[in-house]
């Protein structure tokens, strides 16, 4: 890649990276606290992961191996483009295998495979403020964070139970980090919330449009908010993955035809492929094989 010289390594200039790294260090020092940073224009529109890309660009080195997922999949537009972007501007190795990656940039999922020490999970965050839709004034929400006034968060959960008989929030489910800050875990399904608790990997959150970075350091307590008589629960799926037969994983619904046909498959494509390679087969896959024979 001779034309790499026209870019600085990993696209951002060194001063910008330095600024973002300082924000990241501060975020790690105060788990769950939203650190403002001078978000830059990136060669992609807001809402496509400009925050995550800036965080990744600031921490990536030539030795790193990058994996990018979008809703758990390695092969969707957003994931493919961001992966190609870093291949081009940082010339780093990329992978789709969770266990081989040192940096995983994600939109809306945490990989099914347990992350290990030394790995970094970078989230693309659209709205970092968990109190946003309850209290629109940013001055007020900052004060509420500072004074640890989080009663309002439970008002939201109360409303859910009052109207639906259960806490109906299924994604961006608020968590309390290290017993102090209430944090929005970006729109990951609440299925993934328990994976954040005491995670061995470092978790960084970048919100480009909102200009905020926050973090959960490894081995940090992350507790999902709930009521004593309505405890936090994750989604349960009635059937296993149609392709790999996995149970206890997050599934996507895929509509197959206009006659009500549908299948449920792993949202984490890497996990699904890996299982199939190791001989696991779900209902659909078994049927296809029979048909082929």
């Amino acid at each position: 890649m001779t034309d790499l010289a026209t870019y600085n390594f990993a696209y951002l200039d060194e001063q910008t990276k330095r600024m973002i790294r300082r924000a990241i260090l501060k975020a790690i020092a105060i788990p769950g606290y939203q650190v403002p940073f001078a978000s830059r224009e990136m060669p992609m529109p807001y809402g496509w992961g400009t925050g995550g890309v800036q965080v990744t660009a600031s921490i990536i080195g030539p030795e790193d191996v990058l994996k990018v997922i979008d809703q758990g999949a390695d092969d969707t537009t957003n994931a493919v483009s961001i992966r190609a972007f870093f291949q081009k501007v940082a010339n780093v190795a990329v992978t789709t295998h969770t266990k081989d990656a040192t940096i995983i940039q994600t939109r809306h999922r945490i990989p099914e495979q347990k992350l290990a020490e030394g790995q970094v999970l970078v989230y693309q965050v659209p709205i970092p403020e968990p109190l946003r839709f309850l209290e629109p004034r940013e001055t007020e929400t900052r004060k509420m964070h500072a004074l640890e006034e989080y009663g309002l968060m439970h008002v939201k959960l109360y409303e859910d139970i009052a109207h639906n008989g259960r806490i109906s929030k299924t994604y961006a489910y608020p968590v309390k980090v290290a017993g102090r800050y209430v944090m929005d875990p970006s729109p990951t399904p609440k299925f993934d919330n328990p994976k954040m608790h005491m995670s061995e990997a470092l978790q960084l959150f970048g919100a480009g449009r909102e200009k905020r970075i926050y973090a959960v350091p490894p081995y940090t307590e992350v507790v999902s908010l709930d009521f004593e008589d309505y405890p936090f629960e994750i989604q349960k799926f009635e059937q296993p993955c149609a392709l790999c037969g996995a149970q206890g994983v997050y599934l996507d619904e895929v509509v197959l035809d206009d006659k009500g046909g549908r299948m449920f498959v792993c949202s984490d494509t890497d996990h699904c492929e890996d299982r199939r390679e190791h001989g696991h087969a779900g209902e659909m896959l078994a049927q296809n094989k029979e048909a082929a024979e």
């Binding site: 006034e149 989080y150 009663g151 309002l152 439970h154 008002v155 109360y158 139970i161 709930d226 009521f227 004593e228 008589d229 309505y230």
Partner: peptide
């Protein structure tokens, strides 16, 4: 209920 939740009541019932 807001004030109750603000002072730490966490029992919906």
């Amino acid at each position: 209920g807001e004030r109750l939740m603000a002072v730490g009541d966490r029992h919906y019932g």
